[in-house]
Design a binder for these strands. Structure first.
Ligand SMILES: [Mn+2]
Ligand SMILES: [Mn+2]
Ligand SMILES: [Zn+2]
Ligand SMILES: [Zn+2]
Lengths: 136, 136
DNA sequence: TAAGTAATGCAACCGGGTTGCAAACCTGTT
DNA sequence: AACAGGTTTGCAACCCGGTTGCATTACTTA
């Protein structure tokens, strides 16, 4: 059980500390992305900086990806199995204006667009805002 | 000359004060979007709150639109002539990772995407990050 | 001119994010 | 078991963009 998260962390070359296992566990069971402040609410006894660095470590090692949806706090979600955080792994995110939750729309890739001449692309972010299926 | 901005403000039902004329003038000559902190650097003697409220007023009255490009500060750019800030006026924005400037790609509308069932759309934001034409 | 309304200036505050530093912890070695 | 090195954690402080309350000033109109 913990072994599962343990392996997962080691696969991404992250030393599996207790805190990291717990954070990974929480992130795993979420259907929507979590921000640092939200994580703080879940781990009331944990230190903000530790949670912050945990997320940063996870992100650096591509266990999670970050989503800046304009909701005020950057949110994080588990990367999917095949994800290596390259351009072709980018997908659309959805922010519900009612429940303020952020969904990964993993099945919807970010559409390709043709940039003006001279502009080169390194990254794309597409955030759709609206009402989610749970709120309607 | 000032008359031009004057009319423009009145068209959008904004009382044309001196500060507002100046801010509009600055926004007009910009080729890239401006954030509140950047505006503060330009108007060193002006008060932050005044500039803040000026931007908010402009935005509410659809003289400018805001762009949250993930650069840390929300940026603002003049709306184009025909813009009434509805869905079909949405366009892609470009953030240069070198000069950190944000461009309105007015000629590139945000692509339509098909959301999962139950999800409804109210707004979309698409930000491309890369190297701009000036920086390459 | 006087009253009423809107804009401005100043100060303080909030919240998310980030960092320096010391203590605790882990791991491998003597 | 004691030690040494490197890593993680906890605590505190800080930064910065954004926002608000409130008193003052400016504008409008009766
Ligand atoms: Mn995602
Ligand atoms: Mn724009
Ligand atoms: Zn919802
Ligand atoms: Zn550039």
């Amino acid at each position: 059980m913990n072994d599962k998260f343990d392996k997962q962390l080691q696969t991404k070359h992250i030393k599996p500390t207790a805190m990291r296992q717990l954070v990974l566990q929480v992130l795993t069971k979420q259907k929507t992305a979590l921000s640092l402040p939200e994580l703080e609410e879940i781990f009331v006894r944990a230190d903000k900086a530790t949670l912050y660095r945990t997320l940063k470590t996870f992100e650096k090692n591509k266990l999670i990806h970050s989503i800046d949806d304009g909701s005020g706090a950057v949110r994080y979600a588990l990367c999917s199995e095949e994800c290596d955080c390259s351009i072709e792994d980018l997908h659309v995110h959805f922010l519900c204006s009612k429940c303020n939750k952020t969904y990964c729309l993993n099945e919807i890739p970010v559409p390709t667009i043709k940039l003006p001449v001279g502009f080169s692309l390194e990254n794309v972010s597409m955030v759709v805002e609206g009402i989610c299926a749970n709120c309607r």
